[in-house]
Amino acid sequence: MSTLTDRYVHAVTTQLPAGQRDDIARELRATIADAVEAYPPEDVDAERQALLDLGHPTTLADGYRGGPRALIGPGVYPAWAALLKLLLAIVPVIVGGVALAVSATEGEGAGEVISAAIFAAFEAALQVAVWVTLAFAIVERVGVDPGTFAPLTPAAQWAPEDLPDPEARQVGWGEASWSVAVAAVGIALLTAVDYVVQVDGRPVQVLTDLALTWRWVVVAGLVLGVIVAAHLLIRGRWTMRSATANLVSNLLVGVPLVTLLLTDRLVTPAARPGLLPGNSIEWADLNLGVAAVIIGGILLWDTVDAFRGAARNRRG
């Protein structure tokens, strides 16, 4: 059986980086043995008391590590919590609604339709929590100095008038939150919904095989977009790095989407009648080229806007 010291040393060192464990464990054992020896030899409780004197293992491990660990640090926590609350209020409702509409067209029973909607909403909520947390965890590690919300790099030479004007936040909370919300809805719709509808009682695949494969590129672009938006929320301003990441994100989203629209390979021919209610509109009447140009235009404007913002900051 392990001694109390074994348990204590193990509890401390498992919380430390592997490279430091052995040396700290060895020193800790010697220290505990020294402390036990300082008690009178007849004291049977000496080992226990020596460990209590050392304090809780996690406190000691925090000391060795130089502070408690956190996935989302105090600096970005308010932004993370606010955004998560907002998205959890919006995204599951939209995705649940879409799932409700899709499964209703399949002519299933009410119970199945509702359970499909609840399942999709639940899955969307999970996705939101995972991606937002991941985005903030990444921003926390690469984008922001710990403990500062709008990071200013300390410099020996500085003047008060160089400090950023709080009024000059380029990107408001609302705007950045919305772009995250749109991306989150997109990710959830692309990953949580299976694109099958019923046409004349037979299941028909909606998206082409090509589109189903390329959606993962779009999802990757949207995830990158969430990271960029989280960075924006925290800094409130564009930087060259975030504008470049935004460009990559828009390319990943835009290129597959525009290509599929222009070549009309987004929706399978078999599913087309089922998507358009009534006989008033034919698929051929839909102007996919215009849709492609509008999407491409929005993404291009967004990309240029980001770079202009970054360039302004650089000059400013």
């Binding site: 700290i24 402390a35 050392l54 304090g55 000691l60 000391g63 060795y64």
Partner: peptide, 11 residues
């Protein structure tokens, strides 16, 4: 305290 001193030595 020990849990202050020992990590301090390493730092």
């Amino acid at each position: 305290e020990g849990n202050t001193l020992y990590p301090l030595l390493r730092r």
